[in-house]
Design a binder for these strands. Structure first.
Lengths: 211, 211
DNA sequence: GTCTATATTAAGATAGAC
DNA sequence: GTCTATCTTAATATAGAC
């Protein structure tokens, strides 16, 4: 049971607090309180709060880019697609604070803006590859403007689904679940698929059914 | 040219600044500076900053509910649908600051949460009525779970489209345009429509084309 | 109804001892 | 590497004169 480094404990606890309370509501004092360390100690490990946010964003950026590095010639099954989406939602939800107060975060940490845009781009390109794969397998029509709008819609949805879902929720349910996101994205794809694949995905979506 | 009341000028200017800079970045001092009045004067008209935010939310809530009060038995054409969506996006964009830092705003003004959820509900119900109308005209299939997922998707999209659109934008373009939102929503509907209506909406979408 | 001056509070951050 | 004590800054809000 090696002792976890204070620096890493700060990152873990900050992330948890940011997600739970919203980044603007989390002070450096609260973070150090939660860890039972002094504020001075926190500032020994990080020169500023923005360094913490920046490092967490770097982690997110790294994880999401790994996930979205999809080979161009992939032949993806609907099952694999569900698995991929599950991972994607899970990752985004783990860093959900970034999307909860986006304008505020970008205005206070403007250095993150290019990174945010790159991630948006990666997501859209990743979806493009996946749609191309479905099209190549003859499962989906190939009208480029339709596919482009669909990929934008997929990108928007993975970014904001969790925010939307938890807003609807009375704040009571409290149980975050990436499965609802996968269900929703499946229903974005269903009407674009041919009859047989459409039916297959519809049934697969039941496994991700809310409630 | 009747003189506009200070109270109303405060609301108008606050809304503009909130949308431009993000609500958390707009101090009461900045608002009063912008209006060339003293901070004390501002606090004569509003007991607190949250009163300003609350009143603006009330305006938004009122406008959006008026718009979403769609008669149950409406028979809507695709043209009319486009017009409706244009108004809807325009209204939401006029109060876009509310969705830009949602978690932060809800945590600082928790009294707004029920209203937010009611609006979400109105939107989804409004879309349900519109989809029912299309279904009744034989333009769209009627599978209830499909329609429900679609209405959720429409609701998510009208709420977050502008946020998404301006994030992608280098922040350079700067030209807010509800038409891009309408285009996007049309492309959510297109694959659900029968061949003829689908084609019609696809062509209609050209009028709302980006670029 | 509007002003100036100021009280209050709380955040981010640093200095210096241990 | 960690602590306590403190500085600095800035925002919300109030008091009292005009």
């Amino acid at each position: 049971m090696a002792k976890v480094k204070t620096r890493d404990r700060i990152l873990t606890t900050s992330l948890a607090l940011f997600n739970e309370l919203g980044e603007p509501n989390v002070t450096t004092l609260l973070i150090s309180d939660e860890l039972n360390i002094s504020p001075g100690n926190l500032y020994y490990h990080f020169r500023s709060k923005s360094d913490i946010v920046g490092e967490l964003f770097g982690q997110y950026s790294h994880e999401i880019n790994d996930l979205l590095a999809i080979p161009k010639d992939v032949e993806v099954s609907l099952d694999q697609l569900g698995f991929f989406l599950h991972l994607l939602f899970e990752t985004i939800e783990r860093y959900r604070f970034l999307y909860h107060d986006l304008v505020n975060i970008l205005s206070r940490y403007p250095e993150l803006r290019p990174g945010f845009r790159r991630i948006l781009d990666s997501k859209q390109k990743g979806f493009q590859i996946l749609c191309d794969s479905l099209a190549n397998q003859g499962l989906m029509a190939t009208e480029p403007t339709i596919i482009k709008a669909l990929c934008e819609q997929l990108t928007l949805t993975v970014c904001y689904w969790e925010s939307f879902d938890s807003l609807r929720d009375a704040g009571n349910r409290n149980n975050l679940d990436p499965r609802r996101g996968v269900y929703q994205v499946f229903h974005l794809l269903i009407p674009h698929l041919g009859a047989s694949a459409s039916r297959e995905l519809y049934l697969l979506a039941q496994d991700y059914q809310p409630d």
